[in-house]
Amino acid sequence: MQLIKISKARYRSHLRYVFIACIALLAIGSLVISQTLIAFFPNEDGSHFHWNLSGVMLTSIFIAWCLNKSRQHPFMLEVVYVWELKQALNKITRKMHNIKKSAKKGDVNALTALQFSYAGSRLLWELDDNAIVMDELAIEQLALDTLMQKYQLSIDPNNYTQSMLDAF
């Protein structure tokens, strides 16, 4: 996965529209479906929980289908990229303990995964204005830079591939 610089304003604007559309679709769709089901299949007890739940579930499935179908649309470029970046970083984070141990031994794949993780995290945190943990990230990056100097390596985070994690 390549790290690309994206516009914070454009990303936030598009993400806001996607969230608002999903919330509106969920509210309207679940009400329409559940009320239709209640009209066709009324319950004498007055409890329509299962029809309401069915409406929410069917609408959620429809929203997921719509989001999946619109992944390639230019409007969704930043939103999908950030979502995929978060998934890639989560996969690294789950194996971070083993990656750090291997990095201390000079494993190039581990060092590349760490470099990608730190650069990707910095990109995400800048998009979200999350400055709280930037100092911790700078400390981790300095430790990684020290390791790369020790092993005389220069690592580009864009060389990272998910298959590098298979060894950990």
Rank of each mutant, 00 (worst) to 15 (best):
H97P: 03
K104G: 07
A9M: 03
L147V: 06
I92F: 10
L58Y: 07
A131R: 02
Y81N: 07
E84V: 02
I155M: 03
F49S: 07
T93I: 14
L37I: 04
K91Y: 09
A131F: 04
I139G: 06
G29E: 09
F49M: 11
M57T: 13
A64T: 05
A27C: 09
P74T: 00
P74Q: 00
L147I: 07
H50S: 14
L37Y: 07
N90C: 09
K105V: 09
L89S: 10
Q2M: 13
F41I: 12
G46H: 05
K101L: 14
L127C: 02
W51V: 04
V79R: 00
N98I: 04
R16S: 12
W83A: 13
A143N: 15
Q35I: 01
S102M: 07
L26H: 14
A24V: 15
L26Q: 15
K95S: 11
N109E: 12
G106C: 00
I20A: 15
F40S: 12
L165A: 04
I99S: 03
F62W: 11
C22E: 15
L89V: 09
F75D: 10
T36M: 08
A167S: 12
F168L: 02
N159R: 11
D128R: 01
I63E: 02
H50F: 14
V133N: 12
A24W: 07
K95M: 11
W51D: 01
A88D: 15
A143S: 15
A9S: 06
I132T: 02
L3F: 11
V79T: 09
I23Q: 05
I33P: 03
L77C: 10
S121L: 13
L123C: 05
P74S: 02
G46N: 08
L37H: 01
F40I: 13
S70V: 11
C22K: 12
A39Q: 05
G29F: 06
I33T: 09
D129A: 08
Q72P: 00
G55H: 08
A143R: 15
K95I: 08
I63G: 09
N90M: 11
E44N: 11
L111G: 00
L89M: 15
Q87Y: 10
V32L: 15
A113F: 04
L53S: 03
Y11Q: 01
N90R: 08
V18S: 02
L85W: 12
H50R: 07
L114N: 03
V56G: 09
T161W: 00
Y151K: 06
L142Q: 15
I6H: 04
H73Q: 10
Y11T: 06
T146H: 09
S34F: 05
S54G: 12
D129F: 02
M96N: 10
L37S: 01
A64Y: 10
S70I: 10
I61F: 13
